[in-house]
Design a protein around this nucleic acid. Structure first.
Lengths: 346, 346
DNA sequence: GTTAGCACTCACTTCATTAGAGTGCTAATT
DNA sequence: AATTAGCACTCTAATGAAGTGAGTGCTAAC
C-alpha cells in the first residue's frame, strides 16, 4: 500500500508547515503555499486518504491536519534530506569545541551547551561508558606509615588514584606482593566482569598482606571501580522547552522536567541505545517520553570508547536540521579525541 | 510605632491562613476561625491600619489581605515559635543520614533529597568550600619512567591525587627535590592564597628538576588546586514547585527553573551567605529571587569546614517548620561528620 | 480524476449578566 | 472612645449567548 507521489508531496507539505507553525494545516494553505497545482478540494481528498492510512490526524472536525508519529517516521526514513550546515554554524561549532580540547569533561559539557543553543531544545552529553574497558594493572604506592596510594590503570589509558589510610604497619614488599597478585588476576578483564564475579577474597598466604588486603585494599578497590563506572551526564537547555507551545501547560512541562531530574535513570536508558545517529519518535519511546522525540548520536574516544550526545524535544521538530547538526558535532568530537589528544578523563 | 497586641494577633492570623490556603484572607474568616472575640468590622479597621503600615496588601479592592514581605520578616523575627519535630520525622532523618555515613558526597546529597521531601520545596546541599583550607604537603611519587603521581594533602586531611605523564626521564631524587621545595613553599597557605599570588616559577638551580617542574608539575598543580576549589552542589525537588500555586504560570516556573540551572552562579551566591540558619524573604534577595524566600543553614565537618544546605520556595511558606527542620538536619550532619568519622571527600 | 460550491461543525472571541466575597464608611451602641 | 451593625459599593470570576472564521465532507458538475 504505497503512497502516490502526490500524497508524499502533500504529507511533506503538512509536516513542513506544522513543524514551523505548530498549528493544524488546512487544505487551502497547502494549495496556496506549496505549488502543487491542484485545488484545495483535491488536497482534501488526499488528506482524507492519508488520515485513513494513519499518517495524519484531526484535533477536531473543523480543524486542519497534523502529522502522526507514523508520518514523522516516514519523513525521517525516506523524505528528509540531509541539511548542510552554514559556514558560520560549522565555524562556531569547531571553535567552541576546540577551545578546550585538553579538558575532556569540559569539552563534553560544552558540546551539550552548544547543541541546545543551536537547536533550541533540551540536550545532554555523556562521557563514555567504560564498563567494557579492561584493566591493565593495579599498583600500590607507599606514601608514609599510614598512607598508601592505589592506582588503577585501564587499557584505555584511564587512570584512577585513591588514597588509602591504613591502620596497620606495612612493608614495601607487601605492597608489591598485593599489586602483583591483583594485576595478575585482573589484567585483561573488563570492569563489569571484575565487579560482577571476579573480586578475589584471598591474596595468598602472607598474613600481613592478607590483613592489609582485606581490611583496606579490597573495599577501596571495589568502591573505586564502582566509581569509575559512573558516566558523567551533562544536561543543558532545560528551560528552552518553556518557549515551545507543546509544553505550555504546566503538567506537560513538569513531566518533561521530571525526566531530566532523574539523572541515573536517564543515563541508564541512554546507555542502552545503539550507535550512530538514532531517532525515536513519540510512542516509539518509553512511556515517560511518549510525547517527545529523542535523537542520540555517538562519538568515539581514541576510536574506541563510545560516548553519547542527545536532544529531546516535541515530536514536532526539525529532524533534518537536528540530525545533521548532531552528525557534524559527533564527527568533530571524535576527531578531537583521536589518540593522543590530551585525554584527561578524571 | 509598635503594633498593639491585637494587631499582632490579627497579623499572625492572616499569615497562618494565607500560608495554608494561598488565598487572600478576609475579615470575616479571621473573626470566625481565630477566636479573637471581636467583630469583622473591628478587624477590618485594624487591617486597614496594618496595611497603612506596610504589613498587608490588597490584590484589589474587594479581595482579602495578604501579608507583605515586611510582615513575614516580623513573623520570622518575633512571632513564630520553634516547632519541634515529631519522633517519626526525627527518626526518618537520622536513619536516612546515618545509612551511608562513610560516603561523604552521597550523604550530602541525601540531605538535599531529604530536605525537599520533608518540606515539599526545592532544596540544595553543598559540600564545604575548602578555599580557606591550608596546604600541608605536596608529594611526587614515581610510578614508571613516564608516569608520576602528584599528591596534594591539605591540613583538613583532604587529599587529592593526580597522575602526570611526563615526557622526560627523571630520577627519584628530582621528585624528592621538587616535593620538598613545593612543600616548604606552600605549607600553611590557603588554596586561595596560593592560586592568587604564590605560584612559584622556579624550583632552584637543578636543570632537570626545573624542566620537569615547568613542563609537567606546575600546570597540573594549578589545575588540581582549581579543581579542589569547586564545591559539589546537589539540587533536589525542583519539580515540587510545579504544585505550588505561586508558580502555576509558565513564566514564573521558568524563572525559577532557570535559577537552578545556573549552578556555578548559584553556588557562588550561596557561598557568600553567613553561618547558621538564615532566612531572606522576597525583596531582601537579589533581583532574580525577589519573589522567593531562601533559607540556608550551615553544617560543619570536623567542627571546622563549613558546608551549606538550603531551601527555596515562595515567600508564602511555613517558616517555623522549615527552619526547625533545617536546624535539626544540620545539627545531625555536623554530628555525623565529627572528627574521625570516615570522611572521604573525593 | 478534478474541482466548484455549499452546508455543516467546532473552537474561539466578545459581550453582557450574575453571583459572591469583601471592603469602607457612617451612624448607632456600649 | 472603642466597637459594631448595616449598607452601598467595587471588583473578580463564572456563566451563557451570539457571532466569527477556519476548515471539513459531500455532491454534482466539469
Amino acid at each position: 500500500m504505497d503512497l502516490s507521489e502526490r500524497q508524499l508531496q502533500i504529507l511533506q507539505a503538512v509536516i513542513n508547515d506544522y513543524v514551523q507553525n505548530a498549528e493544524p494545516v488546512g487544505s487551502r494553505s497547502i494549495s496556496k503555499k506549496y505549488g502543487l497545482g491542484v485545488s484545495p478540494a483535491t488536497i482534501r481528498n488526499e488528506m482524507a486518504d492519508l488520515e485513513e492510512m494513519g499518517y495524519l490526524t484531526h484535533p477536531h472536525t473543523s480543524a486542519g491536519r497534523i502529522p502522526s508519529d507514523k508520518a514523522y517516521r516516514l519523513y525521517v526514513n525516506n523524505l528528509m534530506e540531509k541539511r548542510s550546515l552554514s559556514p558560520q554554524e560549522q565555524e562556531s561549532i569547531t571553535a567552541r569545541l576546540q577551545a578546550d580540547r585538553d579538558e575532556f569533561n569540559a569539552t563534553i559539557r560544552h558540546a551539550a551547551e552548544l547543541l541546545s543553543e543551536i537547536t533550541h531544545l533540551a540536550s545532554f552529553a555523556m562521557t563514555p561508558a567504560i564498563n567494557q574497558d579492561t584493566l591493565n594493572f593495579v599498583k600500590l604506592l607507599p606514601v608514609d606509615e599510614r598512607t598508601v596510594i592505589m592506582m588503577i590503570v585501564a587499557e584505555s589509558g584511564n587512570i584512577n588514584n585513591t588514597t588509602l589510610r591504613v591502620n596497620v604497619p606495612y612493608t614495601a614488599e607487601t605492597l608489591e606482593l598485593i599489586s602483583k597478585t591483583m594485576t595478575v588476576h585482573y589484567k585483561g578483564r573488563t570492569i563489569d566482569e571484575v565487579l560482577k564475579d571476579a573480586i578475589i577474597e584471598d591474596i595468598g598466604t602472607d598474613i600481613e598482606a592478607m590483613n592489609l588486603f582485606r581490611g583496606n585494599v579490597r573495599p577501596s578497590f571495589v568502591r573505586t571501580l564502582e566509581d569509575m563506572l559512573n558516566v558523567n551526564l551533562y544536561m543543558e537547555g532545560l528551560t528552552n522547552i518553556f518557549s515551545i507551545p507543546e509544553y505550555s501547560s504546566i503538567d506537560k512541562a513538569r513531566d518533561f522536567i521530571e525526566l531530566f531530574t532523574k539523572k541515573e535513570e536517564f543515563a541508564r536508558k541512554m546507555l542502552s541505545r545503539g550507535d550512530g545517529v538514532i531517532v525515536t519518535i513519540g510512542e516509539e519511546n518509553s512511556d515517560t517520553m511518549k510525547d517527545c522525540s529523542l535523537i542520540t548520536a555517538t562519538y568515539h574516544v581514541d576510536g574506541k570508547l563510545v560516548g553519547k550526545i542527545g536532544v529531546i524535544g516535541p515530536t514536532r521538530m526539525k529532524y533534518d536540521e537536528v540530525t545533521s547538526i548532531m552528525e557534524y558535532l559527533t564527527n568533530n568530537l571524535s576527531e578531537s579525541f583521536r589518540l593522543g589528544d590530551g585525554k584527561d578523563n578524571k
